[in-house]
Amino acid sequence: MLARDGPDAQAFRGSLVFFNYCVTCHGPNADGNGRAARLYDPRPANLRASDKNLAYMRLIVRRGGKAMNRSEFMPPWGEELTDEQIDDVTVYLQSINDRVAAGPK
């Protein structure tokens, strides 16, 4: 069982946000290969290989790609998601990015 407010719980909640809002473009593996990815140029980012820090990820989720001089197709989620959901999804993305960087065990 997850601790209610621990980092694992936050990453779990973030995975729920990701699979509800981000998976269509970024894909179930967060590698930029979602069902809708082929419709966009540039394609959605491979979030598993991101070098962005949590603060930047929060901003792009909140403001969208165009406001951050990135893809205009990345929508701004700041009006739809709560601050907690944005924090949770960025922690989730950081956690999967950390696992990729660590490599196989």
Results as ranks from 00 to 15, higher is better:
residue 73 F to K: 03
residue 45 A to N: 12
residue 45 A to K: 12
residue 103 G to H: 07
residue 50 S to K: 04
residue 61 V to L: 07
residue 25 C to N: 06
residue 23 V to H: 08
residue 87 D to L: 04
residue 11 A to N: 01
residue 82 T to H: 05
residue 73 F to S: 03
residue 47 L to S: 05
residue 57 M to P: 01
residue 2 L to M: 11
residue 44 P to Y: 07
residue 36 A to I: 07
residue 93 L to C: 03
residue 36 A to K: 10
residue 19 F to C: 03
residue 47 L to D: 06
residue 98 D to H: 06
residue 66 K to D: 14
residue 74 M to R: 04
residue 79 E to V: 02
residue 38 R to D: 12
residue 64 G to H: 09
residue 65 G to I: 11
residue 7 P to Y: 03
residue 99 R to G: 00
residue 58 R to F: 01
residue 21 Y to C: 06
residue 82 T to R: 06
residue 57 M to A: 10
residue 74 M to Q: 09
residue 41 D to R: 12
residue 17 V to M: 02
residue 39 L to R: 13
residue 91 V to K: 09
residue 48 R to P: 00
residue 79 E to W: 05
residue 77 W to R: 04
residue 57 M to L: 15
residue 38 R to A: 14
residue 48 R to I: 14
residue 27 G to V: 06
residue 27 G to I: 08
residue 53 N to Q: 04
residue 47 L to T: 02
residue 25 C to F: 06
residue 67 A to R: 00
residue 28 P to E: 13
residue 40 Y to N: 06
residue 95 S to D: 03
residue 47 L to Q: 07
residue 39 L to I: 00
residue 4 R to C: 07
residue 31 D to M: 07
residue 78 G to V: 13
residue 24 T to M: 11
residue 51 D to K: 11
residue 1 M to R: 09
residue 88 D to A: 15
residue 28 P to R: 12
residue 42 P to W: 13
residue 35 R to C: 00
residue 13 R to T: 02
residue 10 Q to R: 15
residue 17 V to A: 02
residue 7 P to A: 06
residue 36 A to V: 08
residue 6 G to A: 11
residue 68 M to S: 08
residue 89 V to P: 13
residue 53 N to F: 03
residue 78 G to S: 12
residue 79 E to G: 15
residue 51 D to F: 07
residue 86 I to G: 01
residue 82 T to E: 06
residue 83 D to G: 03
residue 26 H to K: 08
residue 90 T to E: 02
residue 73 F to T: 01
residue 53 N to T: 02
residue 45 A to M: 13
residue 3 A to L: 11
residue 50 S to L: 14
residue 86 I to E: 01
residue 93 L to G: 01
residue 25 C to M: 09
residue 92 Y to T: 01
residue 101 A to C: 00
residue 19 F to L: 13
residue 100 V to E: 14
residue 77 W to L: 15
residue 86 I to H: 02
residue 27 G to Y: 08
residue 56 Y to F: 15
residue 3 A to H: 08
residue 12 F to P: 00
residue 88 D to T: 04
residue 102 A to I: 01
residue 83 D to E: 15
residue 53 N to S: 06
residue 84 E to Q: 10
